[in-house]
């Protein structure tokens, strides 16, 4: 699989990343190189094989629905880069 610089731009947008123009060519080459290697998965016969998402026990984990004290905004928002009292501040969303 060969990845073009346009595709890098497109995927980067989906990932909410901004790749510097000067780095796009290098990123496209490295990705192509990695994906070419990954293409070897095509040689595995996976007909009828189920998907595995890991080695966790696939049981449902339940707990009692009990009221507990929340840590509160001072703790929850302690690391907020920008806040206005109990609110996070983000750039304007509604124009």
């Amino acid at each position: 699989m060969k990845i073009s610089t346009d595709e890098v731009t497109k995927i980067a947008h989906l990932a909410r990343l901004e790749i510097d123009e000067s780095q796009k060519e290098k990123m496209a080459d490295q990705l192509s190189h990695i994906l070419q290697y990954i293409d070897k998965l095509k040689h595995v016969d996976v007909e009828g094989i189920k998907l595995s998402s890991g080695a966790a026990f696939m049981n449902n984990v339940l707990r009692n629905d009990e009221l507990k004290v929340s840590p509160g905004p001072d703790v929850t928002l302690a690391n907020a880069p920008l806040r206005d009292e109990d609110f996070y501040i983000v750039p304007r969303i509604v124009k």
Partner: peptide, 29 residues
């Protein structure tokens, strides 16, 4: 950033089955 881009690509519409799906089947094996 490189790994986020690979992951985003492999999970994006049209590529999911060929990459994440297949890798998860290989994981079963």
């Amino acid at each position: 950033q490189r790994r986020i881009i690979i992951g985003t690509y492999a999970l994006s519409a049209g590529y999911y089955d060929a990459y994440y799906g297949r890798a998860s089947q290989v994981r079963t094996l």
